[in-house]
Structure formats: C-alpha cells, structure tokens
Design a protein around this nucleic acid. Sequence first.
DNA 1: ACACGCTTGACAATTTGTACCATCTGCAAT
DNA 2: ATTGCAGATGGTACAAATTGTCAAGCGTGT
Lengths: 155, 155
Amino acid sequence: MSNVSDTKFESRIGIFESECRKNSLALTVQRRAIYDALSCRKDHPTADQVYEDIKSKLKGVSRTTVYRVLDTLVTIGVAKRISIPDPKARFDGDMQRHHHLTCMKCGTVFDLHDESLNNLQAPLGNDNGFEIMDYSITFTGLCSACRSTIKYPAK
Amino acid sequence: MSNVSDTKFESRIGIFESECRKNSLALTVQRRAIYDALSCRKDHPTADQVYEDIKSKLKGVSRTTVYRVLDTLVTIGVAKRISIPDPKARFDGDMQRHHHLTCMKCGTVFDLHDESLNNLQAPLGNDNGFEIMDYSITFTGLCSACRSTIKYPAK
DNA sequence: ACACGCTTGACAATTTGTACCATCTGCAAT
DNA sequence: ATTGCAGATGGTACAAATTGTCAAGCGTGT
C-alpha cells in the first residue's frame, strides 16, 4: 500500500486526490486529466506531449494550464521532473525510485528498474548542509537501434 | 597524466587543442574563448550564460556560435551536457566523473565528487542491447540556504 | 443555491535553441 | 610569407519552449 507505482489506476487517482486535498488544491477536471495522461504513460513526455494527449479529450485546455499543472504535480509530489541532457523539461509519473538510460544519439529515454541501485549510500554532511531527499542515475550510451547504424570514425 | 580534471589551465588548453586536431577542427579564437570560459567555471552555465561571459572579451561573438561551439565541445568529448531537472541545457567543463546535488527549491546545482559512487555496477544486458558508456547521479533535495527558510506544511 | 477565492484560458512576452547563407579565417600546400 | 579552399562565424530570421498577466470561470465550504 505504500508503493505508489505498483498500484492500479483507481488507486493512483485516489493518491492524487488525497494529495490535492492535503494541500488544499481544488480537484479540477484539468488537473485530473493531466495527471491521468501523465501517469498512464510509460515514457517521459514533455509538457507539449501531454498537451497533445489531452487536448482531444478536454477541448479548450490551454497550454499554459498544462505547464502550470505539471509544475503543481511535481510540487505536491505525485510526479517528477526527470534528469536527462535534454533542452526540454520531461516529466515522469512513476514515483518509484528508478533510473534512466538515455541514448546520446537519438535521445530516447528508457526506464531502468534495478534494486541494486536503489540503496546507494548517500554521502551525508558532504556538502555543507545539503539535505538529500532522493536521487536518480542517468546512464548515457547508445541504444541498440543506434548502435547498429553508427559508424565509428577511424582515428 | 590521464586525469583531465586535475590538470592546470595550460594542460587543459593543451588537451582541448589536441582534441581539436585529432578531429581536424580549426583552432579558432571563438572555440578557445568558449572552452576557456566553460572550463574556468565551477558551476554549470547555460549556453546564454557562457555567451554573456565571453561577449565582453570577444567583441562581436554570435550567440549562434556559442550554441554551436558548446555542441562541438560535447561531441569531441571535452565538455558534457549535464543531467538535472531543468528545462535549459547546461554544460560542464569538468570531465572527471562526478555527480550533482540539485536544490529542488532554488535550483542551484552543486558538484559532488565522491569516489565511492564512481564504480557502480552498471547492469549490463538489462535493456536489450543498450550500451552504457557513462553515468551520473543527480541527488535532489534542499540546500542549506533553502532548508533554513522553508516552512514545512503542517499535515 | 451562494459567495469567495483558487484556477483557468487566452494572449503576449521572453527565453531558448535552430536554420540559413554570405562572409571571413585557420591551415596546409605552395 | 602568400594563396586558396574548406570549414567556421555572424547575423538575421525563425521555431520551439516556457513564463507572465489578468479577466472570467469553476470548485468548495457553508
């Protein structure tokens, strides 16, 4: 029950709603729709991708709202901004600790769930008073598709 | 001799120049200036911050050139794009493996050099054929300045 | 059902990143 | 040292991404 990511759709919505109430945020249709759209996806959409997703279902949504709500979701802790070398903000509805493989050629991001990476000894007291609350590892390299097409330059 | 990050300015420039030659790239004043500006900084500037840095010294530089050269530096392996949850591209002239502490409140990024984190067992064969070449850990939390001002909401 | 205040939508403004092309410059061959 | 060419730059224009503003709308507690 404490593991958000394993829960089914109904529970996820329940968690979202209770987090909203806890923070006295109104349960608007927009927030619901945006949270749904994000948490249903397995990939790591940009704000605009989420916007594209929902604008058919929710006619008249504003792009501004999508940006704003995604930000809210991150703030109340039901979504994350992910860390990859990409000039666009990307969001992740999977709150379970996990990591990412990012292809340096095509930019695709793959999830990596690996228990052995989830209990790193965070170096406390290292940087004058920084309080670490979470972490995520970004592996960079080449996905199989790009590996098979790349020609390494002869040195 | 194999450790780029510990070297002094003159060596860094030397490494930069030899990498350029190796890739048959012309040693232009712009490339030098941009590499200098980046590798002298301890933080993780955006492209525009680098541009602001050098446009006083190098009158007439184009913003386009800064974007272009930063990209080149990453390609030839003398700089990195860093992975933090930020919608702007950020660059790092420190090529030694290290990690980052990012404050979720103010967004400041601190370097974290910690040997014990530099030899993670990268889970091979995990994701159908992805070839891991490097990794970096992003710790998220609160810096000391923000910790002292934040009021935790009463639950 | 009512009123208050949080949210949204629409548009504008900014910021960030890319495309294009004429001009310039590093560099190697003379 | 001079020259010629390929690659690099500057600058404008453009596209994409994100943020600011504010009147109007909707969710919530009463």
